[in-house]
């Protein structure tokens, strides 16, 4: 088993998975808390379209994914910063339109089957050095932005109304947050594919939420879940010769299911002695 580490593609794949796990857990935490799950699905699908167009023109698909997901995330951010019903419709339209674009361009491309399949289910074992450098740059950019604006994001996530009233440019931060999801989608499309990107983004953070009363704990727990699921899924895929995205998707979904069952936040006290008392002033 240890022999596999003598192959560079295994190391590259493992590093890519670790990058995807770290970025997904950090970006996913804010995505879950702000209720951006549907919006994220639309953006990951637009990165699918971007990657497909890039295939036609012989450009690195990750750059295509980056370009189109940025464009569509701007539209999505605009729609979601206006009224909720309009946002729902626009996000749904972006979801459908970008998928249609992807199908159109992949149908035109001669490499249709292989390329489409790799974008849909990921191709972590096919990560090239250029892909890896791109993932590292994108991940550093995403994590750097979050580190720089962390306190502002925390305020806006908790209480956007007061954040706006007390001087934060909530609309600008909203756009940045949505662009971060676009950055994540670029990382995810290569590692787990467009379909499972959303579950990698949402499930670790949603699981961590069940055990956290402060944001820092939620980030750490989310990262641990994503890393364990990522690395475990990768090794299982090597053993069983099945796409790693399948195992990663199943692992994070099981983690969420377990979190729901054992969540301390959902616990009900059945005896007075076991109930929590609100501390008096």
């Amino acid at each position: 088993m240890l022999d596999i580490f003598s192959y560079p593609f295994v190391w590259k794949a493992l590093v890519a998975i670790i990058i995807a796990a770290v970025v997904s857990s950090v970006v996913g935490t804010f995505t879950v808390l702000r209720g951006f799950s549907t919006l994220s699905a639309a953006i990951t699908h637009s990165s699918f379209a971007g990657a497909s167009i890039a295939v036609i023109y012989g450009v690195n698909p990750l750059l295509g994914a980056l370009a189109l997901s940025f464009g569509f995330s701007g539209l999505t951010a605009y729609a979601s910063s206006t009224n909720e019903r309009k946002a729902d419709v626009v996000i749904g339209m972006i979801f459908g339109f970008s998928t249609a674009l992807a199908v159109l361009f992949l149908s035109i491309a001669s490499t249709y089957t292989a390329a489409a399949w790799s974008f849909i289910i990921g191709d972590v074992l096919g990560v090239s050095w250029i892909d890896l450098y791109t993932l590292i740059i994108v991940a550093v950019a995403a994590l750097g932005i979050i580190a720089l604006l962390y306190k502002e994001f925390k305020f806006i996530t908790f209480d956007p109304e007061a954040a706006e009233a007390m001087g934060l440019r909530v609309s600008a931060y909203h756009y940045i947050m949505v662009f971060l999801i676009a950055l994540f989608s670029v990382v995810a499309i290569k590692v787990v594919g467009v379909i499972l990107a959303i579950v990698l983004l949402i499930a670790p953070a949603a699981s961590a939420y069940e055990f956290s009363h402060d944001l820092e704990h939620m980030l750490v727990i989310s990262m641990i879940i994503a890393l364990i699921a990522g690395v475990l899924g990768f090794f299982l895929s090597l053993i069983f010769n099945i796409a790693s995205s399948a195992f990663i998707g199943i692992a994070v979904s099981i983690a969420y299911l377990i979190a729901l069952v054992v969540s301390p936040k959902r616990r009900k006290c059945r005896e007075i002695a076991k109930c929590r008392i609100v501390k008096e002033v």
Binding site: L33, K151, E152, K154, F155, T157, F158, D159, E161, A162, A163, A165, M166, G167, L168, Y209, S212, H213, D214, L215, H217, M218, K265
Partner: peptide
């Protein structure tokens, strides 16, 4: 600024100190 309390989802994972410091962040 103090908004109507009902507009805030209290289940978001923050501590009391985080909330009070948010004003300073802004």
């Amino acid at each position: 600024y103090v908004p109507q309390r009902e507009r805030i989802d209290p289940t978001k994972p923050v501590l009391v100190k985080d909330v009070v410091l948010m004003g300073r962040v802004a």
